[in-house]
C-alpha cells in the first residue's frame, strides 16, 4: 500500500480555512456581546442562551439522524451559531418552552427543510425569531430592565425599549423633545444600558466583535457599512426635515437590533449575496426597510423583517449582478 501513489487533480495543497474555523470565529466574535448580556441581564441571559444553543444542536442532530440518515454534521458549528444568534434576539425573561419552539422553527423549518447547511434561503435564527414574535407577542415584547446580576429570570422587572417608547409617544401625539426625558442617553445606549433583546443592547460589544470578524477576514465591510450607512442617511434626512417628529440618526443606529443585525445577521454567508456590489444593494435595502418599518410600520422594530425581506432578493441578485470580469474589455495600460 505504501508504494501506491495518490493521484488527484490540482491544486495539491489547501489553505487553512475551514467551515469550522469560520464558525468558531463567529462564536468568538459573539462572545463580547454575550458577556455584556450577562452583565446586564444576569441569569436570564445564560438560561435563554444555553437553552437555545442546546435545543438547536439537538434538533439538528435528531433531524440528521432520523430523517436525512446521512453523516451527522453538527460539529460544523452552524447550529451553534444559529442557536447563539437566536438567543441574542430574545428578551432575557422569555420562558424556556418558547425558546425551544423557536429553535425548532429555526433548525427544522428554516434550515433542514431546505436541505441543511448552505441551502436555506432565509436566515434560520431570524425565521425562528419572527415566528416567535408573531406567535407569542406578549412574551416576546416584555423586556426586562437591565439590573445586572440582580435582574432575575422569571420575576424580572420589565419596561419598554427605547424604540417602543418613541413609537408609543409619537402615536400619542407627543413630540421627540418631550420624549427625550424617558429615553436613555446615547452614551448609556452605546454601552447597552437599556431594555432590549439580550444580545442587541451593547453596541460597544458588538463593535468589538465586528472588528474581530474584519481582522480575521470572516466578513467584508460591505454589508454592515451599507446597512448602518443607509439607516443613518435615511434617518438623517427625516430628522432634518422635522426633528420633532423623527428621531435622530444616532438614536436609530444605537437602538434596537441594527448593529446585531448589520454585523451578525445580515452577513450570514448562506443568505447574503456574494458580489460586493450586490452586498451594498442588499445592505441598503435592509437599512431603508428597517427605517420604513420603524417610522411608519406598526412594529417599533424592523431589522428582522428587513433582513428576511432582503434575503428573498439574494438569489435574484446572485443571478444578475456579476463581478466585472478580468479582460472584459481591452485595457491599454
Amino acid at each position: 500500500m505504501n508504494n501506491i501513489l495518490t493521484v488527484s487533480p490540482s491544486p495539491h495543497i489547501h489553505g487553512k480555512e475551514s467551515v469550522q474555523k469560520i464558525m468558531r470565529d463567529v462564536v468568538i466574535a459573539l462572545m463580547p456581546a454575550f458577556f455584556a448580556s450577562v452583565f446586564y441581564f444576569g441569569l436570564g441571559a445564560i438560561i435563554v442562551t444555553v437553552t437555545s444553543v442546546a435545543s438547536c444542536l439537538l434538533f439538528e442532530y435528531l433531524i440528521q439522524r432520523f430523517f436525512f440518515r446521512k453523516p451527522i454534521t453538527i460539529t460544523d458549528g452552524s447550529a451553534l451559531v444559529t442557536g447563539l444568534l437566536l438567543a441574542f434576539n430574545l428578551p432575557s425573561n422569555i420562558p424556556v418552552f418558547i425558546v425551544v419552539i423557536g429553535s425548532f422553527i429555526s433548525i427544522a423549518v428554516a434550515k433542514m427543510t431546505f436541505g441543511g447547511l448552505g441551502n436555506n434561503p432565509f436566515n434560520p435564527a431570524l425565521v425562528g425569531r419572527v415566528f416567535m414574535l408573531i406567535s407569542f407577542p406578549v412574551q416576546m415584547t416584555s423586556w426586562p430592565v437591565p439590573k445586572g446580576l440582580a435582574t432575575g429570570y422569571a420575576d424580572a422587572v420589565t419596561g419598554a425599549t427605547p424604540l417602543a417608547i418613541v413609537k408609543e409617544g409619537l402615536k400619542n401625539g407627543e413630540s421627540i423633545s418631550q420624549l427625550v426625558g424617558n429615553l436613555p442617553s446615547p452614551a448609556r445606549m452605546f454601552l447597552g444600558d437599556m431594555g432590549g433583546s439580550l444580545g442587541e443592547v451593547a453596541a460597544v460589544a458588538l463593535l468589538i466583535g465586528f472588528a474581530y470578524l474584519l481582522i480575521r477576514k470572516v466578513i467584508t465591510w460591505h454589508i454592515p457599512v451599507a446597512v448602518t450607512g443607509s439607516i443613518a442617511i435615511f434617518a438623517a434626512i427625516l430628522w432634518l426635515s422635522n426633528p420633532e417628529k423623527f428621531a435622530d440618526p444616532m438614536f436609530h443606529l444605537l437602538a434596537g437590533g441594527v448593529l446585531l443585525g448589520a454585523i451578525f445577521m445580515a452577513t450570514d454567508y448562506v443568505t447574503s449575496p456574494m458580489v460586493p456590489l450586490s452586498m451594498l444593494i442588499y445592505g441598503c435595502g435592509i437599512g431603508i426597510i428597517t427605517v420604513l418599518i420603524r417610522v411608519w410600520g406598526s412594529y417599533p422594530e424592523g431589522v428582522s423583517f428587513a433582513i428576511l425581506i432582503m434575503n428573498a432578493f439574494v438569489p435574484l441578485m446572485n443571478a444578475n449582478i456579476k463581478p466585472k470580469r478580468f479582460g472584459e474589455e481591452m485595457k491599454n495600460g
Partner: peptide, 19 residues
Amino acid sequence: PRTSRYDGTADCRISNSLY
C-alpha cells in the same frame, strides 16, 4: 491490481481526463 489511488472528485469524466 491497483497501481495508484485516486483522490479527486468521484466522477469518471474528471478522473478519465486526468490520468
